[in-house]
């Protein structure tokens, strides 16, 4: 298996699996119950009993992180997926009809979405549908759509100038088919990289929404809300902020590494040189 020779794929895969595993385990077991408050042991530094310490309400941070992984990873992943699923086809369609009315409509609609601050969009959506994790996902997903649409369009446009797309048209293939068969595989590496970057932004966006009270509702913990709540405590109990921050950093790093590895693995030009 070629995949086992790529160090970034192995490392990234391992880190990502670690957090997915933590999220999965949290469904059946956590070291402590995160809904139990114990003011007596609040803000304790890491110890044998509480490996990562406790927060301002005396909850075990390790347990909170495990529970929070569920929400954070799910929100970010689904939002990125949503943004990609909507944005990439729009971008490809716009590029295939460059300069036409379809291109204009798609790109101007993108501009409108980008013109609204992401937060405002999110507030509007939650104002209509009510706060909650699902609506946070939709809000973040809508915000990602133009990002992917623009990226896909830009990359596709440069490919449309190459002769192999012309050769495919001489072979009687439709623009839709060329977009799927020739353009998409060639921009996949860019999309993977943008996807991992967007994932990091997704986690942060979820944190922002949670902070404002538009995301997952208490008592469901999320990394973003943990970070937000720890904001005022960094001076007296830095570990309360450090651990959720670290969790975000390491997950994003893992996904980035995995994205790099995947990109190289999928490119036939890099295969031989990497072996």
């Amino acid at each position: 298996m070629r995949a086992f020779r790529s160090p970034s794929l192995i490392g990234g895969g391992a880190l990502s699996t670690l957090f997915l595993l933590a999220a999965a385990i949290s469904y059946v077991w956590t070291p402590y119950d995160v809904t139990q408050h114990a003011i007596a042991i609040r803000l304790q530094p890491p110890s044998a009993a509480h490996w990562l310490g406790t927060d301002q309400l005396g909850r075990d941070i390790l347990s909170m992180l495990m529970m929070g992984a569920r929400i954070s990873i799910a929100v970010a992943l689904v939002a990125v997926g949503l943004g990609m699923a909507a944005g990439v086809p729009l971008g490809l369609a716009a590029a295939a009809r460059r300069g036409g009315w379809l291109d204009e409509i798609i790109m101007r609609a993108n501009d409108i979405i980008l013109a609204f601050p992401a937060l405002l969009t999110a507030v509007m959506i939650t104002a209509v549908f009510g706060p909650g994790a699902v609506n946070a996902i939709i809000a973040i997903g809508i915000f990602f759509t133009p990002v992917f649409a623009r990226l896909a369009r830009g990359a596709a446009l440069s490919l449309w100038t190459l002769d192999f797309t012309l050769a495919a048209r001489v072979a009687g293939k439709s623009r839709l088919r060329i977009s799927l068969e020739h353009i998409l595989p060639n921009i996949a590496n860019l999309l993977v990289v943008q996807g991992t970057i967007s994932f990091a932004l997704g986690i942060l966006a979820e944190a922002g929404l949670a902070y404002l009270g538009f995301g997952a509702q208490p008592p469901t913990p999320s990394w973003g809300r943990m970070l937000a709540e720890a904001q005022t405590l960094t001076a007296i109990a830095p570990h309360v902020a450090i651990f959720p921050g670290l969790a975000i950093v390491v997950t994003v790093l893992g996904l980035n590494l995995m994205g790099d590895g995947l990109r190289d693995l999928l490119d036939p030009r890099l295969r031989r040189s990497r072996t």
Binding site: L162, D163, F164, L166, A167, A168, V170, A171, G172, K173, H182, P185, N186, D267, P268, R269
Partner: peptide
């Protein structure tokens, strides 16, 4: 048709068999 640029005329992600049979479409 055969184009000028021997580098841009082919999708780098396909094998020769697939490239050559594209006109079968």
């Amino acid at each position: 048709i055969v184009f000028q640029d021997p580098y841009g005329s082919f999708n780098p992600r396909h094998r020769v068999a697939r490239l050559v049979t594209e006109p079968f479409h």
